[in-house]
Write a protein that binds this DNA or RNA. Structure first.
Length: 300
DNA sequence: TGCTTGGAAGTAATTACCAG
DNA sequence: CTGGTAATTACTTCCAAGCA
């Protein structure tokens, strides 16, 4: 293939920007060039590929099927180029440079204090840029290319992401200390029957996972009580409003007066903590190394 | 080395078009 | 009409290659 038939990196950058931002003007801005410069490159690319990449409606711009496919490829290629540049700069060392890392709120405060020091020790060249959001938002950001790696519960709906399980995080029963189950060495899911179970707000994947356990076992949700965070949830339980399922990962940090925590007898319900990343990511091997570091930092 | 040159990619200004 | 948007036009800038 003659060189002149090959799209330039610059064209791919512009293509990806327009596909993402749905606007020539905003794409130009984000690429720090003028709008005509970007227009010209897109036109040139369309001529080169012999296909229309965007529908220019006066009001908005939409990728054609060919454009969407090309933009997806472009993003892959740009990412590979980033990896190439980073590894060249880092003399081939993986896990050097910046990693944009998204974590859900029911994991971040409980795992990161242990895991991050380990990451710093084992991968001193790696700079983590942390972002805490709920699952749906994290997946959006990852698909759009704004995040490189996600740490979340793999039971959630994660679209077409690639997954790397780290460890199981068993659920514990949390109850007020005067509760009938509070003194037990262990409980079974069937003990939930008839219990008022408090859950997190919509949007927390933990809510769905706990609800799943309740459905199996006839516990009923107290719909009027939804907490926006685990610490709040725990305070409500300690105050006698009901019981809840608590991830073992979070339990030690959430211990409080008036709260009893009881493990489930085997097989205990659990969530799977793991990494998720775009299928197209060229950094799978790095993520596997990082996964090892996180597993070691995990409880048990 | 230093000068010339041609092409690529940039900008500013302008045009053309549409929705509200 | 106005405001927002992409395309067009007419330049300018930059840089690598060719050559004395």
């Amino acid at each position: 293939m003659p060189l002149s038939m090959r799209p330039t990196v610059r064209q791919l950058e512009y293509l990806a920007a327009v596909a993402e931002l749905r606007s020539f003007r905003r794409a130009a801005e984000s690429c720090h060039v003028s709008q005509p410069a970007l227009s010209a490159q897109i036109q040139q690319l369309e001529r080169l590929l012999g296909a229309r990449l965007f529908e220019r409606d006066r009001r908005r711009v939409l990728p054609t099927p060919a454009g969407a496919a090309a933009a997806a490829r472009a993003r892959e290629i740009l990412e590979r180029l980033d990896v190439l540049a980073a590894s060249a700069r880092g003399l081939g060392r993986p896990l050097a440079g910046t990693l944009r890392f998204g974590v859900i709120p029911t994991i971040a405060p409980y795992l990161l204090p242990k895991a991050l020091p380990a990451v710093r020790r084992r991968h001193p060249e790696l700079r983590l840029q942390l972002r805490e959001e709920q699952t749906d938002r994290l997946v959006e950001l990852a698909q759009a290319g704004s995040l490189d790696l996600l740490l979340l519960a793999l039971e959630a709906e994660l679209g077409s992401m690639d997954l790397l399980p780290l460890f199981h995080d068993p659920f514990l029963l949390a109850a007020p200390s005067e509760h009938r189950l509070a003194g037990r060495r262990s409980v079974r899911e069937s003990d939930l029957e008839g219990e008022a179970v408090l859950l997190l707000d919509d949007g927390h994947c933990l809510r769905h996972q706990a609800l799943e356990v309740c459905r199996r076992r006839g516990g009923h949700e107290l719909a009027d009580f939804r907490a926006s965070s685990l610490p709040t949830l725990v305070q409500m339980v300690a105050g006698g409003a009901g019981v809840t399922l608590l991830p073992a990962l979070a339990a030690p940090a959430l211990a409080t007066r008036g709260l009893a925590v009881v493990p489930f007898a085997r097989p205990a319900p659990y969530r799977t903590i793991g990494f998720a990343f775009r299928r197209s990511s060229a950094r799978r091997e790095e993520f596997q190394q990082l996964a090892e570091t996180f597993r070691r930092a995990a409880p048990d």
